[in-house]
């Protein structure tokens, strides 16, 4: 490359941002946002829709937060199982991960709500009957009575749905944690063990603190995926954003406005979150 070529390349970079390089997609999204905002302000159909959907937005966020927290705990534990040398811990974790990842989330949610939960309730009822038949007074008797009285209606559909979502995502988080743990150089575990730490202590103080930093971006991305997948909860008639969209359409027959608003609300949430994840990635790569 000649000196001239180098120079033009340099000046090219310093020159004012060229048209092709502008983040056009951001501008278009902003424009759409303005359009919707304008509609909300001027049209009662839109503002009424937004008001109706707002509870759904809150439930979407709440159920995603709860399901995600549970999924992270499940994922961390089974992720540890996936790298464990204990054959039982490893086998149980792997079975869970492989089975859950092989079934569509929608099917899992339905399965949790209408197959697993009723079976669990039957089990609890049976235990209650057993207890009340054996003991006639005291704490165990009271416990048995409340067990026996528990009915399927006692477990709210949103609880079943959120748990189902958590169990489904736990399998994906497990693989994220496994990859993070395996990305830490072998020498770290060896150094920790050679100082007399147990496997558990080495994990807790040396491996996991490093692994978790590495998996923060993928964990953040999974949060975004989960927020979107929480729309599947509408299949269980849980009144989150998508379900309220369906209800709003049925109520007003305004298909166009309803789904515009629903899609836009999801987009705002996911775009904000993904900006957060990108900022986090940048910070981690600097350190």
């Amino acid at each position: 490359m000649t000196n001239d070529a180098v120079k033009t390349k340099r000046t090219g970079r310093l020159a004012p941002v060229s048209l092709e390089r502008l983040p056009w997609w951001v501008l278009i999204v902003l424009l759409l946002g303005l359009l919707i905002a304008y509609n909300v302000v001027t049209s009662t159909t839109y503002s009424d829709t937004l008001k109706f959907l707002w509870v759904g937005v809150k439930l979407t966020i709440l159920s995603t937060l709860v399901a995600y927290a549970v999924a992270t705990v499940i994922g961390l534990i089974t992720g540890l199982g996936r790298v464990s040398t204990n054959p039982i811990f490893y086998t149980v974790s792997t079975l869970y991960v492989e089975v859950v990842r092989g079934i569509p989330i929608l099917v899992q949610l339905i399965y949790w709500a209408f197959v697993v939960t009723p079976l669990l309730i039957d089990g609890v009822n049976g235990l209650g009957d057993f207890l009340t038949a054996r003991v006639s007074t005291g704490f165990l008797f009271n416990l048995g009575q409340s067990f026996a009285a528990l009915s399927i209606q006692g477990i709210d559909m949103s609880v079943r749905g959120v748990l189902g979502l958590a169990v489904a995502y736990g399998a994906y988080e497990a693989e994220v944690f496994r990859a993070g743990i395996e990305s830490i150089e072998r020498g770290q575990m060896e150094a920790a063990r050679s100082l007399g730490m147990s496997y558990f202590q080495a994990m807790r103080y040396v491996i996991l603190p490093q692994a978790i930093r590495r998996v923060l971006p993928p964990l953040g991305n999974d949060f975004i995926s989960m927020l979107k997948d929480s729309s599947l909860l509408s299949a269980l008639a849980i009144r989150e954003l998508t379900q309220l969209g369906k209800l709003n359409r049925a109520r007003t027959f305004r298909t166009f406005e309803t789904w515009n608003m629903v899609a836009f609300l999801y987009l705002v949430m996911t775009l904000c979150l993904s900006m957060g994840v990108k900022a986090m990635e940048r910070r981690l790569s600097i350190e």
């Binding site: 150089e185 020498g187 770290q188 060896e190 150094a191 920790a192 040396v206 603190p209 490093q210 930093r213």
Partner: peptide
Amino acid sequence: FQLFNLFPH
């Protein structure tokens, strides 16, 4: 160790 293996965090 040859490569120190300090805990980087």
